[in-house]
């Protein structure tokens, strides 16, 4: 599908501060886009707005997803329609086990989309398979959601949820940050394995090395709330080498 996600002239402010300015971005089905930009340029803000978080003032522009006006849907409707955000800072939810949380989320998704509940046995098989791929122990599945998880463990857990929920648009907000060298490879390859013609990804990262493992179709350079240049993987290589200087001065 063309323009699976279409962001047109989007401007967003928080507490009267304009953070995103006239942003345009089109992602077709099956494409992987990378978004790179310096700290504080508005990447997480954009992810949050796509996912429907409250507290942002959309001063201008439109977002359509799968042909529908995305902005009219609640966060859970967006999630159930296939938008998944792997958080830069996943939150802790005490008393709720990781596995139970994922099951609840999966059930909500399935119910919304008119599917029968997954059989407990099938669920267990699926989650064991995916967590093995990501190197997540059974013990961590039974722990309380993100409570006391290390930074890297939290990120792996976001990847696990992504793989379990199989979204049609996955937004990864610095999922690679905080992972050790080995975990980095494991998670990147696992995420890359979910790539298909039927889904799209928006990958937010500071590091070109991630894009070696998940090769993007398009790389966007995001400065001060707008995309100022888009191109192929070579753009990421340039940023890796020379930083954002050229773009800042542009």
């Amino acid at each position: 599908m063309k323009n699976f996600l279409k962001i047109k002239d989007l401007s967003i402010s928080v507490e009267d501060k304009c953070i995103i300015k006239n942003l345009n971005l089109n992602i077709n089905k099956g494409e992987v886009h990378a978004l790179m930009g310096p700290n504080g340029c508005g990447k997480s803000t954009l992810s949050n707005v796509l996912a429907g978080k409250e507290g942002y003032n959309i001063t201008n522009g439109k977002i359509s997803f799968s042909g529908e006006n995305l902005l009219k849907f609640s966060p859970d409707e967006r999630a159930n329609k296939g938008i998944f955000l792997a958080f830069q800072y996943p939150v802790e939810i005490p008393g709720v086990t990781n596995i139970n949380f994922i099951k609840t989320a999966l059930e909500s998704n399935r119910q919304y989309n008119g599917l029968d509940p997954i059989k407990p046995g099938d669920f267990l098989k699926l989650i064991k398979e995916k967590s093995k791929l990501l190197g997540i122990s059974d013990e961590n599945l039974k722990r309380q959601l993100n409570v006391g998880f290390s930074g890297g463990e939290k990120k792996r857990n976001e990847a696990l949820q992504l793989m379990m929920l199989e979204p049609s648009l996955a937004i990864l907000d610095e999922t690679d940050s905080g992972l050790d060298v080995d975990a980095f490879k494991i998670v990147a390859d696992a995420v890359n394995s979910t790539r298909s013609k039927k889904n799209s990804m928006l990958i937010i990262t500071h590091y070109q090395r991630l894009l070696e493992r998940i090769q993007p179709d398009i790389v966007h350079v995001f400065i001060n709330g707008s995309i100022i240049e888009s191109g192929g993987p070579e753009l990421a290589e340039e940023i890796d080498k020379n930083g954002y200087e050229r773009f800042n001065n542009a």
């Binding site: 996912a51 429907g52 859970d76 159930n80 958080f87 939150v91 939810i93 949380f101 609840t104 989320a105």
Partner: peptide
């Protein structure tokens, strides 16, 4: 928001 982003 975290829970709702997951579909609840």
């Amino acid at each position: 928001f975290y829970c709702r982003q997951r579909g609840l």
